[in-house]
Nucleic acid binder design. Structure first.
Length: 775
DNA sequence: CAGTGAGCGAGCTTCCGCTTGACTT
């Protein structure tokens, strides 16, 4: 018999709490939700006021049966799930699934895991908040209705196995629209003029001063006119202004900001960050990693205060309470912080150490003083022009939190100004050394990274800390979005320089536009997005979630009935589903590119069963008509921007480029990339070196000979006893192959020394190990 | 391992949010 059973959501939390509570308390975890809507069908009885059909999923059956057993033995059950919509629903589902009775069941909540907080919570127990539960049910059911009614439309009208949902479809929309913005972006060039001046101080010491004209100059002609004027101009300092400013540290990490900083500073993907954070959490090194709160508990603040005072002195201490900006935040947890702020470093692997270091610094810095900066702006008048040169300098008068932590940004840094200015005074005369006009270009908005997409979603109030990483991976899995690098290109720019009264013009090249790990929409993502935006613009609206969240809040505060809300939504949503299913044309992204010059037949691109393709000729049912010809688009080719020429080129494969050893050489592109087929064998073309559309016979023969040479060295040893057993040289070193299965040759073993018996022994050992996994 | 794309129809796919392991290479 146990006196008290406490149920929390996570096992790591259960372990820590158990330490605080005495022997009379046993703490167990539910591992999140224990019931969900049935997955076999819609899981909602529309006709009976949207009655949900809840089941216990297979992977939760074990947890539930264990909890049931413990409940029977317990005098009192304490439901200690999180204090938000989902947490309240978990508590309620536990009541239902475990048949808890009101007399000995209590609902408690606590925001921090300290003895005080927990004993307080136990003193202030309450019952289940059914309004909050209803708000969760409304959220759950709306998401199910949207997801399970929209997805099948896509299967029918676009392609099987696609998906749509309140969160993922908007995430895809952001990426699609950003890409179109980039495709349609027109670069505008302009000029920026900067100068290096010489200036003398009272003691005739000479200093250099860099200054810039703030305004953009539109044309080269205007630049030349200005430079001509500068030849005879005098430059005078007319104003020196000093302005103090301050920088404030960023608040402690939430899931979203941790993902962003880990991406920028450490190059982690969103899911990498979460996996590493999970390990740190389970090891008791950080607090919970799925949170939207920037709040630190009093205990944490106290510990941070000690660290700052000890390490940097009280001058650097500034205890602050941060407030969340995000409206959607439910703040069931603390911010992400070190469990023990006094610990600056931890043991663990490299990634864990780095992420911990980031969290530690951010947490400590958040309680440190502002950095004080003095910014000086020097205005330089030009005697014969209205433009003004400005020189700016920045000095740090007090470093404050910057001693420890500098937040990075997605934006490019302003490389001008900064640093210390030479001693100057008003009316000083400046002698120009060189005045340079550089041609610049406006730049398109950046593509999203995983982390910047999370940031945007959070701003829109879409998704939750626990779903950011899964959402990002879903939209990639469905093929809507690809994370990839893109090579830059060379761009020419004009440089005009005025030195010693001579104007010199140069045209230089710069390499721009290289991007890494950015999110690009794929063809199917664009087609699905356009379809959904066309027929379900309300759900694809960026404000849809924010609007329904307000209604969920009203349900939570008891002002609204959840079935009424869902009913109103469904009555306008479902008819659209029906009409779209019956009336809309299949949407394959068809685009007519022009006519094939050889046959005069139309050339189109569309989405086929196996991806984007080009087609010459129409589909006809008549037997006498020729079947259309098909060719897949190549990776990275965009249905929206592909030209007729590019599409026609796809049909030039397979290409017969001649003969070698009396057999044809056929070049084509297969599932694994471009290849040469010769004597019914396949030879891959080298990535980035060979082009299947232009490769010639000499190079093809070279590739074939190279491969044959390699294959010759492939067999290290074969055996008379068993022709199916061989030792081969592979990509990762020697290996044994036997009946189509491969086995690694143990390290530090000379493969030539292995006998037939040795090989059989190795194979048997591996097979044995597979059958009986240790532990 | 080295393209496929007609049309028919069976049977499959799918959401968001809360949580961990269980898997494979």
């Amino acid at each position: 018999m146990i006196d008290n059973l406490v149920i929390v959501e996570s096992p790591a939390k259960a372990r820590t709490i158990e330490k605080f509570l005495g022997k009379e308390f046993q703490v167990k975890s539910s591992m999140g939700h224990i019931r969900d809507l049935s997955k076999k069908d819609l899981g909602i009885d529309i006709k009976s006021r949207y009655k949900p059909k809840y089941i216990i999923p297979d992977d939760k059956k074990k947890v539930v049966s264990e909890l049931k057993k413990l409940v029977k033995e317990a005098k009192t059950v304490w439901l200690a799930s999180d204090e938000d919509r989902e947490g309240e629903a978990i508590a309620w589902h536990l009541c239902e699934a475990l048949n808890l009775n009101k007399e000995n069941t209590r609902r408690i909540v606590f925001h921090e895991i300290t003895r005080n907080a927990i004993t307080n919570a136990i003193k202030n127990h309450r019952g289940i908040d059914y309004n909050l539960v209803d708000a969760q049910q409304a959220r759950r059911i709306l998401d199910r209705l949207v997801g399970f009614e929209l997805s099948p439309i896509l299967w029918k009208k676009v392609k099987p196995a696609l998906s749509a949902g309140r969160v993922q479809s908007v995430a895809v929309r952001l990426i699609v629209e950003r890409e179109r913005e980039i495709l349609n972006f027109k670069y505008i060039s302009y000029f920026k003029i900067s100068a290096i001046f010489k200036v003398k101080d009272k003691n005739n010491r000479i200093y250099e001063l860099k200054a810039e004209i703030q305004d953009k100059i539109e044309s080269e002609k205007e630049v030349l006119e200005l430079l001509e004027k500068f030849k005879i101009a005098t430059f005078t300092i007319t104003d020196i202004t000093k302005k103090p400013s301050r920088k404030t540290p960023s608040p402690p990490f939430t899931t979203s900001t941790l993902q962003q900083e880990a991406s920028r500073k450490l190059g982690f993907s969103v899911s990498q960050t979460m996996t590493i954070a999970q390990r740190l959490y389970e090891a008791g090194k950080i607090t919970y990693m799925r949170t939207d709160s920037v709040n630190l508990s009093d205990t944490a603040l106290h510990a941070v205060k000690e660290v700052v005072s000890r390490e940097y002195g009280d001058k650097y201490l500034n205890i602050r309470k941060y407030k969340t900006k995000s409206k959607s935040a439910q703040e069931a947890h603390e911010a992400i912080r070190p469990a023990y702020p006094a610990k600056q470093t931890i043991s663990g692997n490299n990634a864990e150490k780095k992420l911990y270091d980031l969290i530690w610094k951010r947490t400590i810095a958040s309680q440190m003083s502002d950095a004080l900066i003095e910014k000086t702006t020097v205005t330089i008048d030009i005697s014969n022009a209205n433009e003004k040169f400005l020189a700016t300098g920045e000095i740090l008068t007090f470093d404050g939190f910057l001693k420890l932590y500098i937040e990075s940004t997605d934006d490019e840094v302003d490389e001008n100004s900064k640093g210390l200015l030479p001693p100057l005074s008003v009316n000083d005369l400046l002698i120009p050394v060189t005045i340079t006009a550089t041609e610049k270009f406006t730049s398109h908005p950046p593509r999203y990274t995983e982390a910047s997409l999370v940031k945007k979603l959070e701003e829109l109030g879409i998704g939750r800390p626990s779903t950011y990483a899964p959402t990002i991976s879903t939209i990639q899995q469905r093929g809507y979005v690809i994370k990839q690098d893109k090579a830059g290109y060379e761009r020419k720019y004009i440089l005009l320089e005025l030195t010693d009264n001579n104007i010199n013009k140069e045209v230089n090249t710069e390499y721009v536009g290289t991007v890494k790990a950015k999110l690009f929409p794929d063809n199917i993502g664009m087609i699905v997005n356009d379809f959904l935006v066309r027929y379900f613009s309300d759900i694809l609206n960026y404000n849809f979630t924010a609007t329904i969240e307000e209604e969920f809040d009203e349900i939570a505060s008891g002002k609204k009935n959840w079935t009424d809300m869902i009913d109103r939504f469904y009555k306008q949503f479902h008819p659209k589903v029906v009409t779209t299913l019956t009336k809309s044309e299949p949407s394959k992204g068809d685009r007519h590119l022009g006519e094939d010059p050889e046959t005069g037949k139309p050339v189109i691109v569309k989405m086929g069963r196996y991806g984007a393709m080009a087609q010459i000729g129409e589909n006809t049912s008549k037997d006498n008509e020729e079947k259309p010809r098909f060719a897949s688009l190549r990776k990275g080719q965009n249905m929206e921007s592909i030209t007729l020429e590019e599409a026609l080129q796809l049909f030039s494969l397979p290409r017969n480029i001649g003969q070698f050893d009396g057999k044809d050489l056929i070049v084509s592109i297969g599932r694994f990339g471009p290849y040469i087929k010769h004597d019914s064998k396949f030879y891959s073309l080298k990535k980035g070196v060979d082009d299947p559309y232009s490769i010639d016979i000499e190079r093809a023969v070279e590739i074939i000979k190279e491969k044959q040479e390699k294959d010759k060295n492939k067999i290290i040893k074969s055996f008379k006893e068993e022709p199916e057993l061989m030792i081969l040289n592979g990509r990762w070193g020697p290996y044994i192959t036997y009946k189509k299965k491969n086995f690694r040759v143990p390290k530090k073993t000379d493969p030539n020394s292995l006998s037939y018996e040795d090989c059989i022994k190795i194979i048997k050992e591996v097979e044995e190990r597979k059958k009986s996994p240790e532990k």
